[in-house]
Design a protein around this nucleic acid. Sequence first.
RNA 1: GUCCCGUUCGUCUAGGGGUUAGGACAACUCCCUUUCACGGAGUAAACAGGGGUUCAAUUCCCCUACGGGAUACCA
Length: 503
Amino acid sequence: MSVTVRFAPSPTGGLHIGGVRTALYNYLFAKKHNGRFILRVEDTDQTRFVEGAEQYIIDSLRWCGIEFTEGVHLGGPCVPYRQSERKALYATYSKELIEKGAAYYAFDTTEELDEMRTRLEASGVKSPQYNSITRNTMKNSLTLPQDEVQRRLAAGEPYVIRLKVPRKEEVRFHDEVRGWVVIHSSQVDDKVLMKSDGMPTYHMANVIDDHTMEITHVIRGEEWLSSTPLHVLLYRAFGWEDTMPKFAHLPLILKPEGTGKLSKRDADKFPQFPLEWTDTEGKTFKGFRELGYLPEALMNFLALLGWNPGGDEEIMDMNRLIEAFSLERIGKSGTKYDLAKADWFNQIYLRKKEDSDLLPEVRHELEKAGFPQKEDAFVLKVISLLKDRVTFIREFALHGKYFFQAPVEFDAEMHKSKWNENCPAWMNQIADTFENLQEWNHPSMDAAFKGWAATAGIGAGKVLPAFRLAITGMAFGPSTFDVAELIGKEDTLARLRYAAKNL
RNA sequence: GUCCCGUUCGUCUAGGGGUUAGGACAACUCCCUUUCACGGAGUAAACAGGGGUUCAAUUCCCCUACGGGAUACCA
């Protein structure tokens, strides 16, 4: 089976998480079947066009690890891949439809359309539509005399081209996710195909492009399910029904709480964009990248939002996802967007990384935190000690500050519960004991510590928390001896004496 | 309003005419750990409701409720 799929966003803003998932599923499907994967830009709405959005989409998908075989940024056999550059093609095809009698010119103004709707509503029509009945009362090439139509066209009067939806026809299509969907053509209105500015509408451009690009599977969000009958009618009008692509409508991603479809407008409430995005009002939203999510974790999380491999398997990298993916296992119901599990995936993938792979980014975080520079070996050691304890890379700086600077603030709760009046003296004694250590490492410190505690007649458990507090200032982290080993003898003794004096 | 789609633990989901309805995240408890994590063992937690069909329905059918989508010269 030869497969061609496409991801066709419109450059009206940042790419939100639903779009990323759609792109991901298309990518997985294409890869699985060794097919073509096209990035097509649907920029037919000039009023909503946002500068930079196209590049943003390309960059975002690249970061996600979603790769295309052809598209706006790559070129390919179906060039151009931007719909605004394919205008002539749509014009040609719309003429063809008119000649076939499957479409017609309509000259109605916005006011006249409104008038029609209010008039029909007043007379009790539930949902007023421009359709096989009402079109007879409107100004179009079906009602106007031919010479008047020609005259208006020649005079350059604004017009749209509408699909002449047949009165009584059954429209049925098989959705790969939902099964058979049947609808009657009387429920479809005479949709505008070509707008008065000469641009096609989504429906028109979409069908023509999918056909000319030989798309075999349309995998898109459920918001398109209700317009699919229209698309089927269009394929039928063109005589392309036998090569019509298969459809797979993805369940929608819903807001984490409350109701409704996730939209870009919610981006200030929870992360939605792969990369940082600044909207047209100058508002900047952090992306998953900036928040510290690893792309492989995000993809794993997203893949499982509306699809699953059937068993208990959850940790799946891109190759595994490609291998396991199938349209049949896509779910039908909407999915709430709950990032808690994404955090878990991030933790898993973070732990899977080699320490050295983490080094550049950890360094970046440390620098951002303003910590003094340390050699690679030192930072690598910090990474190995902290890796099991963090979910995000930025937490290396948060939870590991004591590796880079002596604590000046001490955890109040721990101070209260674990630090008593004997502690200053103990800390000094430990410092004295450590002073004489020949070897500076965890085992020797451990032995010396235990020896001191035994001769002093103190339970190690009573002193250890205080020791930790003196060295790190917090109640969190790897073994204090490991910390002490890494920061060195001099620093360790200084911290002990400082705590003895000041706590 | 109309049309279309959907409904299993809080969340993501498996399952499917007869099951102790399974897993994961999150929560909680315990173990390990003289901290925090990791790891391990547990606890709590779901078939929207009502009618059919059937020996049997969470599973099939219908209705209702609820949720979502579409109803633009936006995609």
